[in-house]
């Protein structure tokens, strides 16, 4: 497969459960070697999309091709080449780390000898070689997550699908997972993942989409999305009538969030300076625009669930 043939190609893909539309006519393509993120609040349709890519949930409309083949028809041959990290950790609690991976390798029909070598290698990769013969229940949340990642790699997948890979982990454990994903990315693996941690998306993705209510709102690289939607920088000031009057005079775009005014700009120094010069802004704070600003701007600040 050359670099121009997409690994995943979705056109007008949709999924309904009764009258509820979980995924509403989305189109996207993922190319070899890309790390592609799905960002969105709870209930945006991210997990449903992952399940369709994994060939475990049939689509309701549109087309979805994985490795150039229709996902609804060639499930077995597609699944053979996938590595999946599900949102919920579903390891076999009765088994040790090693046994978990061995049992899983059988589902792929990997001969035992080959599997054993690969398992030792993977346990080393996720830094669990010392836990090789330890039962799952004795592992921490972060270790379990790493073992699930190792399990997803058992068949040398051509595409790695991760649904909230670092959900519920402490910062150290998250950084360790990110480090592993970075290594996999550097090796040229194609990775698709969902997250609602914006920092995670910003660090890992080459490209991402932001989803809300079953639709894709925007698509692009993290940097392009930030500069395109909020500008490179943000100046925050106290929300007073004086400040608002000032900003109106300057003619820059801004938004009010509670007791705070955010000014989106590519020129933070000048904006801050003229705030201090012409009005009495109280605290002024300038910072880089982030994906979080894009996300909140597009999906709104109302609580989602």
């Amino acid at each position: 497969m050359d670099a121009t043939t997409p690994i995943i190609d979705a056109q007008d893909l949709s999924k309904t459960f009764g009258s509820f539309v979980a995924v509403n006519n989305i189109s996207f393509s993922v190319f070899p070697g890309e790390v592609f993120g799905f960002l969105g609040p709870n209930g945006a349709g991210k997990t449903t999309t992952m399940k369709m890519i994994q060939c475990v949930s049939p689509k309701s409309g549109g087309s979805l091709k994985v490795f150039g083949r229709e996902a609804g028809i060639y499930q077995r041959s597609i699944k053979k080449r996938l590595g999946v990290v599900p949102q919920e950790t579903n390891l076999d609690t009765e088994f040790t780390c090693f046994e978990n991976l061995l049992v899983y390798s059988r589902y792929f029909g990997i001969p035992k000898q080959e599997a054993t070598g690969r398992i030792e290698e993977l346990l080393r990769f996720v830094q669990l070689e010392e836990k090789r013969d330890v039962l799952i229940e004795r592992l921490s949340g972060g270790m379990k997550r790493r073992l699930v990642l190792a399990r997803a790699l058992i068949n040398n997948p051509d595409l790695l699908v991760l649904d909230e890979p670092t959900i519920g982990l402490d910062p150290q454990a998250r950084h360790l997972i990110w480090e592993k994903l970075k290594v996999l990315q550097a090796q040229g693996n194609t990775i698709v993942f969902t997250t609602h941690y914006l920092e995670e998306a910003e660090r890992l993705c080459n490209r991402l989409v932001i989803m809300d209510e079953g639709k894709i709102l925007v698509e692009g690289s993290p940097a392009d999305l930030v500069s395109g939607h909020v500008g490179s920088d943000i100046v925050e000031a106290e929300h007073t009538p004086e400040v608002i009057a000032c900003i109106e005079n300057m003619g820059v775009s801004y938004e009010v969030f509670g007791d705070m005014v955010q000014i989106f700009t590519d020129n933070p120094r000048e904006v801050a300076k003229s705030l201090f010069d012409t009005c009495n802004p109280g605290h002024v704070f300038a910072r880089r625009g982030s994906l979080e600003d894009v996300f909140l701007k597009l999906t709104g600040r109302a609580l989602k669930d």
Partner: peptide
């Protein structure tokens, strides 16, 4: 509870 079936159908198993 254990989602064992989910883990299995994420492989070539139907």
């Amino acid at each position: 509870y254990q989602k064992t079936f989910d883990a299995m159908i994420a492989t070539p198993l139907a």
